[in-house]
Design a protein around this nucleic acid. Structure first.
Length: 576
DNA sequence: CATGATGACGCT
DNA sequence: AGCGTCAT
């Protein structure tokens, strides 16, 4: 069944966050955001005023539209940019514990998602500044309550169309130019093409798209009014085309791609502007098949693609034809998060320093875990360290129990252990160029800690006085899982390690405050399952020993094979 | 002068 | 579990 997908991209997002912080100084100004002022160690800066830097600052990571108009481009060094635009204001990202602190942007991004959730049943957070929405239902509802001609009129008034002259011109811009905001981008002005478009006869699905465009426009308006962020959007029958459409007109504009416009839009679209083909795979396709556009790829036969070694031919062709239809995922929050830092030209040489950084990372991650946990009653169960040297890049993962713990220590200890698992016996000359730590594999926690404790304990300290929280109502967790989780927590925090299963149920949790009688009354199969869960979780949590010297691989400079699939984000999983 | 920090996911 | 790719 056809869907209506909106793809929203916040305009010059890091810049917009900074403008929100200091509107009187920054609004309407040519502005750029850079990562650090210098690569040398310097004190943390979080105050907005301290972050406006007059010198230094390496590659720009965000450029306001005012600065783009002056020729400032992303990836310029700050000094280069100042030459192009002497009035340029450069703001460095906040730093904390000696590293960039992106929480300002992340937190604002979460607020954006919250607002967008009011407008769509299915919301997929794609990155800090991108969100895909399935607005099919909302569009249908709108058409049920509003005459379709009125809906169409509203949509036309606030949207571009992909087959207009200016849209098709924008579709021919190179990938690089499009990314940095090509010339001629400006706020919306009405044009004759769009009016002509409005005179055409709409199919019933066209009306649905038009309704979706009204919904998306309302969503964008809400984001702008409540948070001050402007954004651009594309509206189409699938996520990939919606994203392509989104890129046609920025900032603060939206573009509708009717099904009948897809072919002409893709005809001259540079191949590497198709999501997933912006890297190696796209380059190989271009050079091996001597094509440069999506339209060119669409004209290649499946068998030629297969013969050239592109096993993912079907998806490639679907992408080139604009029919690749990956559903909008129902995921408004992160599946993992982490903290990392590059030590450019000053690699970490010894374990002590690495440990300190890992502790910092762990603290930062734990702060995020606490936030996330309060909102979503979940906690991660994996900790992964990531280490890059000149010669290698490796990751090491182990299980960790966080639960409702209020200390970052479990993560800190895991991180230090994982570091040693990699380093082996070596303690110096580690030469770590990039060090990172992350957590993943979230599991649901008891929605309300106290209320679950009530179930299993007679400890009056744990009896909750409040009714269940709203979080519990919104996200009821399965009782079985909940109990297993609790048992696991009890087991791993107990002072003794039990190596054998006790003969009596009541002897099972030496220092537990779980009521043995309650446990004893559980049906035998539940007991067995709980015990099984407990031992399994314990086993998983046991760190294994590694041999780092065996793991030092050469980093492969050149990869590899035409078997790589188009970016998973837009590609449906291949059937079996 | 010049440097990124995350995050998702397929393949094996 | 670990690696590689693609993305912003």
């Amino acid at each position: 069944m056809s869907r209506v997908v909106g793809f929203i991209d916040l305009d010059a997002y890091y810049c917009a966050c900074e403008v929100k912080q200091k509107p009187s100084l920054l609004a309407g100004k040519p502005l750029a955001v850079c990562m650090y002022e210098t690569w040398k160690k310097s004190p943390d800066r979080s105050a907005d005023m301290d972050r406006i830097v007059k010198s230094g600052g390496a590659g720009l990571i965000a450029v306001s539209y005012e600065a783009r108009a002056m020729g400032v481009k992303r990836q310029m060094s700050a000094n280069e940019a100042r030459k192009a635009c002497p009035e340029l204001i450069t703001v460095m990202v906040p730093t904390k514990n000696g590293k960039a602190d992106l929480s300002l942007y992340k937190e604002n991004g979460e607020k954006v998602v919250e607002i967008l959730q009011e407008f769509a049943g299915i919301v997929e957070k794609r990155s800090v500044d991108e969100v895909a929405l399935d607005v099919t239902d909302a569009a249908q509802k709108l058409l049920e309550t509003t005459p379709k001609e009125l809906v169409a009129r509203q949509a036309v008034n606030v949207s571009h169309f992909a087959d207009s002259e200016i849209s098709l011109k924008a579709s021919k811009i190179s990938h690089e130019a499009a990314r940095r905001g090509h010339e001629g981008q400006h706020e919306y002005t009405k044009n004759d093409d769009d009016e002509k478009n409005h005179l055409l006869k709409y199919s019933s699905f066209d009306y649905l798209l038009l309704a979706g465009a009204v919904v998306i426009n309302n969503a964008r308006k809400a984001v702008r009014e409540r948070l001050g962020f402007s954004c651009s959007a594309g509206i189409a029958a699938n996520k990939m085309i919606a994203k392509v459409g989104c890129g046609l007109h920025k900032p603060n504009q939206q573009t509708i791609v009717f099904p009948r416009s897809v072919a002409v839009l893709l005809k001259d679209l540079p191949l590497n502007r198709l999501p997933g083909l912006g890297g190696d795979l796209g380059n190989r396709i271009s050079s091996q098949l001597n094509i440069t556009t999506a339209g060119g790829l669409a004209n290649i036969s499946r068998s030629i693609l297969l013969n050239a070694g592109f096993q993912d031919a079907d998806n490639l062709l679907a992408a080139a034809n604009g029919t690749l239809d990956e559903p909008v995922k129902n995921r408004a929050n992160y599946k993992s998060f982490g903290s990392s830092k590059t030590f450019y030209k000053h690699p970490i040489t010894n374990l002590t320093i690495a440990d300190q950084w890992l502790s910092n990372f762990a603290q930062e991650i734990f702060d995020r875990i606490k936030n996330d946990r309060n909102q979503r009653n979940r906690a991660p169960t994996n900790v992964t360290i990531s280490i890059t040297t000149d010669k290698s890049h490796v990751t090491r993962t182990e299980k960790v129990h966080i639960g409702w713990s209020d200390s970052p220590q479990p993560i800190v200890r895991s991180a230090h252990r994982l570091l040693r698992r990699w380093a082996g016996t070596r303690t110096a000359h580690l030469d770590i160029v990039v060090l990172g730590l992350g957590v993943s594999n979230f599991i649901d926690l008891p929605a309300n800690k106290a209320s679950v404790m009530d179930l299993l304990t007679r400890n009056p300290l744990h009896q909750s006085k409040k009714p269940s929280s709203s979080a519990e109502i919104m996200q009821p967790s399965k009782k079985k899982r909940t109990i297993a989780e609790l048992l696991y927590q009890q087991a791993t925090t107990s002072t003794k390690k039990t190596t054998t299963v006790g003969k009596k149920d009541s002897s099972f949790f030496p220092s537990s405050n779980i009521d043995p009688e309650v446990f004893a009354q559980l049906p035998p199969e539940i007991k067995a399952e709980l015990l099984d869960d407990r031992t399994r979780l314990l086993r998983q949590s046991a760190p294994s020993l590694g041999n780092s010297h065996l793991e030092q691989r050469q980093v492969k400079k050149k990869k590899k094979t035409a078997t790589t699939t188009i970016d998973s984000f837009f590609a449906p999983r291949r059937p079996r």
